[in-house]
Structure formats: structure tokens, C-alpha cells
Nucleic acid binder design. Structure first.
Length: 317
DNA sequence: AAGGCGGGGGT
DNA sequence: ACCCCAGCCTT
């Protein structure tokens, strides 16, 4: 049984949904690749990387067998490089469990998927739904915002609902037998109409059902049409170009730019990472590289002697 | 509960 | 100068 609200959004999605590459497949590997790439990363930037990645690693078997260095190279431009490492480890876990000879070795339930590295509550639900067509509810930033507005009201009206409350709303909304379309549809609405800034309620198919729109559309609250943020004062923070995060990125990028399998000494790497490099920075650089090595993003090749400058590092083969 | 983790785009 | 983006993991 589908309600009028559900049918309205499903019809809107059928007519207006974007033709995204991962919506054309139910291959769990391809769906997984897309979902990992889409974590905190916009659709438009993922699309070309998704195609290129699948060209390099067409199946879970090939990804599992690849050199980590090549997987890290393929991740360039996506950010959050640990996702690449975790994705390959997930592929290795699936293959070691017997996939594809045993298709059941690829987990198809949220609980089973949740056990794979890099897969949290959202991604587990999304893969169960989008690859295995299970009628499950899950929350990403789009679904959370749509459900928040639809079932609770404007973000400007406290109190902020608990995550569990929003998830309960989301679960009630999933039309039995149509979880795939429903979850794609509600995410699509959040991405294209019910946006964080300047939601376009005038072209929203659900506005007559929406708790937030009820408030926003009343004459004396026009001022709240734009959800305004509390505007908390924030302590002045360090410029991004001075953060660990920035230099971790620079280090991995420098190793990507080097020919495959080349190791760089810290003395060689330093000037590539900061223009004002002097040997004074050696301990700082060694510490950053050690952190990256702990994450599996780089590997120490040699740490001979006590001369930090001669320690060398490469992408992990 | 908070902080770390990348990078690009929008306003 | 912020904010936002198909989050996850560790502490």
C-alpha cells in the first residue's frame, strides 16, 4: 500500500530523477564503489572518477588483487584517501569469503555490510537497498534534511530531534516493495530541491505534505523562508594550508606524481611538500609520514641509520 | 560527544 | 570568510 505522499514523490522521481551511472546497475561491487566515493563528495565530482576507477578495477576480484599504490592513485582528487584503503580491504574481505564463486559471500544485509571496513550505518543501508533492493531506511545528509522538514518542521524551530526519531520517521515513509525507488527519490529531492540553502519549495512535489512548508508559507513568517543558521561565534582557526590535513594531502600527492614504485627520501620529499623547506623540518615530516603509514596510505621503504634525511617512503605496493 | 580526515564548489 | 557535500573512525 502506498500513500498519496509516497506515490507523489515516486512519480516525481520517475519523471525528474537524474540518470546517474550507479542507478543503472545492481552489481553490488559497483554500488559499493559509488557509495564509498559519494561519502562527503558531490555527485558531479564522483561521476568521472567512478568510470575511471571501474575501468582500472572492473570487478571486486581485480580490486582485491591490485597494488594499494594503484588504488591510491585512482583516488586522486576525491579526498579522504583512507576511503581507498578501506574500499580495497572490503573487497579483499569479500573475495576471501568466497565471492564471486559463492554469491552469498557479498553481504546483502545492513548488519553484514556494516562489518566491512569503511562501511557505516548509512553505506550499509544504501548498499543493501541500492544493490540488493532491500526495503530499508537509512539517513544521509539529504534524507535527514528532507525528513526533518517534512515530518518535523523548519530547522529554525527547536528542539532539534534526535537521530533515532528522524530514522523512525524515515522508516515509516518507505513504501513496501519500492525501497530502491523511494530512497533514490528522497535523496534526489534533497539534492536538487530541498537543499540546505534556499530550498525551492515552489517546485517541490511534497510541499502540501510538508511541516516546514506549512510554517514557511504563512504570511507572518516569510522572514524564515531561508533557514538561518544560529551563527555561533567560532574561534579563529589555523589557515587550512598550515594544517596536518593539508600537508598529508601534499605528501600523498607528491608520491602519486612520482613514477610508480619510486621511493623518496625525506630530504627529497620535503621540498616537494613545502617550498620553504629546510632540514629543520625533518622531524615534523617524519611524524606526518608515520601517521600516513599507520593509515596504510604510504609505506616506509628504509629507516636505516639515525639520519632522518635518508629515511625513504613510497606508496604501498 | 568531539575531532580528524580532502578537496572542490558556492555564496 | 564562511558553508556545504550520498560519512566513518578513533578517542
Amino acid at each position: 500500500m502506498t500513500t498519496q505522499l509516497q506515490q507523489t514523490l515516486l512519480d516525481w522521481f520517475a519523471a525528474n530523477g537524474r540518470d546517474l551511472p550507479w542507478r543503472r546497475t545492481r552489481d553490488p561491487y559497483r554500488v559499493l564503489v559509488s557509495e564509498i566515493m559519494l561519502q562527503q563528495t558531490q555527485v558531479e565530482r564522483v561521476i568521472p572518477k567512478y568510470h575511471a576507477f571501474l575501468e582500472l578495477f572492473p570487478s571486486v576480484v581485480e580490486l582485491a588483487a591490485a597494488a594499494p599504490a594503484e588504488v591510491i592513485r585512482a583516488w586522486q582528487g576525491l579526498g579522504y584517501n583512507r576511503r581507498a584503503i578501506n574500499l580495497q580491504r572490503a573487497a579483499q574481505a569479500v573475495v576471501e569469503a568466497g565471492y564471486p564463486a559463492d554469491p552469498s559471500a557479498f553481504p546483502s544485509t545492513p548488519a553484514g555490510l556494516r562489518d566491512l571496513p569503511g562501511i557505516g550505518a548509512y553505506t550499509a543501508g544504501a548498499v543493501a537497498c541500492f544493490a540488493f533492493e532491500r526495503d530499508v531506511a537509512f539517513m544521509d545528509t539529504n534524507i535527514r534534511r528532507v525528513v526533518r522538514r517534512l515530518s518535523v518542521g523548519p530547522e529554525t524551530v527547536p528542539p532539534e530531534p534526535r537521530e533515532a526519531e528522524l530514522l523512525a520517521h524515515a522508516e515509516r515513509l518507505v513504501p513496501p516493495g519500492q525501497g530502491w525507488s523511494w530512497n533514490q527519490a528522497i535523496m534526489e529531492l534533497g539534492a536538487t530541491i530541498c537543499t540546505a540553502a534556499k530550498p525551492q519549495c515552489w517546485r517541490c512535489p511534497l510541499r502540501e505534505h510538508c511541516a516546514a512548508y506549512q510554517v514557511w508559507s504563512t504570511a507572518d513568517s516569510q522572514v524564515e523562508l531561508l533557514p538561518q543558521t544560529p551563527r555561533r561565534r567560532k574561534a579563529a582557526e589555523v589557515p587550512f594550508q598550515q594544517t596536518n590535513r593539508y600537508f598529508r594531502g601534499r605528501i600523498v600527492d607528491a608520491l602519486r606524481a612520482a613514477p610508480p614504485q619510486t621511493a623518496l627520501s625525506l630530504a627529497e620529499l620535503g621540498p616537494l611538500v613545502r617550498p620553504e623547506w629546510t632540514s629543520e623540518w625533518l622531524p615534523w615530516l617524519a611524524k606526518l609520514v608515520t601517521g600516513l603509514a599507520n593509515d596504510g596510505l604510504v609505506a616506509w621503504i628504509s629507516q636505516h641509520g639515525s639520519e632522518l634525511a635518508h629515511w625513504s617512503v613510497a606508496l604501498p605496493e
